[in-house]
């Protein structure tokens, strides 16, 4: 009896941690969290739907403690579902030390996140910048023609985090050698 009860306790402790991947899977399937797929989509044989246009708005912000300047070159774009588009984001590191940034996207309304397919995105990787360096970071995407009819406008917000402290050793070495 005691052993059985202790097993329940250990099991529930494990369940607490199992909630972490379960939460991600649940949000990925239902798309209710505005999280986009973090891997590159493949663009092939997609039929462009010229009959509708969707407005996509890009917002940028930097997280507390992240000194970079971060702006969307294109703040608002009208696209046909299925059409491949590229937008660019400007970043500059005004600090006197090299910093590694990581952008995290969030789509609103959340259900649109399931239909935003990115074939290339700066948010897939850590982005290193030397002191004073600036760069244009591209993002190539298409909107899935399956996007529900009632969504004609959605917003993609990127938040830029300073992840220098979490960077791997090879990233740090690569940055000092550049």
């Amino acid at each position: 009896m005691v052993i059985k009860l202790v097993t329940i306790v250990v099991g529930m402790f494990g369940f607490g941690f199992a909630l972490v991947p379960l939460y991600d899977v649940f949000c990925e399937i239902t798309g209710i969290n505005g999280k986009t797929d973090n891997t590159a989509a493949v663009y092939e044989s997609v039929i462009v739907d010229d009959s509708r246009t969707v407005t996509v708005e890009f917002l940028t912000r930097t997280h507390t403690g992240m000194p970079w300047k971060f702006e969307a070159q294109t703040q608002r774009i009208e696209v046909h579902p299925g059409e491949l588009n590229t937008v660019e984001f400007y970043v500059r590191n005004p600090a006197s030390r090299p910093i590694i940034g990581q952008a995290i996207p969030s789509v609103s309304p959340g259900t649109a996140a399931l239909y935003l397919n990115k074939t290339e995105c700066f948010c897939f990787n850590h982005q290193p910048l030397q002191a004073g360096e600036e760069a244009l970071m591209p993002m190539q995407f298409y909107v899935d023609p399956q996007l529900p009819e009632d969504i004609s406008f959605f917003t993609v917000q990127y938040t830029l985090f300073d992840v220098t402290a979490n960077a791997t050793e090879t990233e740090k070495i690569a940055m000092t050698q550049r």
């Binding site: 009860l5 329940i8 306790v9 250990v10 099991g11 529930m12 402790f13 494990g14 369940f15 607490g16 941690f17 909630l19 972490v20 997280h63 990581q102 995290i104 938040t159 985090f161 300073d162 992840v163 402290a165 979490n166």
Partner: peptide, 29 residues
């Protein structure tokens, strides 16, 4: 016995997020 272990898990995640670099609750990671 069903929920106190879940609380223990939650505080453990807070501990590792704060002191050991995990990212259970940190969007950057």
């Amino acid at each position: 016995i069903a929920v106190m272990p879940v609380l223990a898990g939650a505080v453990t995640m807070v501990l590792t997020d704060k002191f050991f670099g995990t990212s259970f609750f940190d969007a950057a990671g």
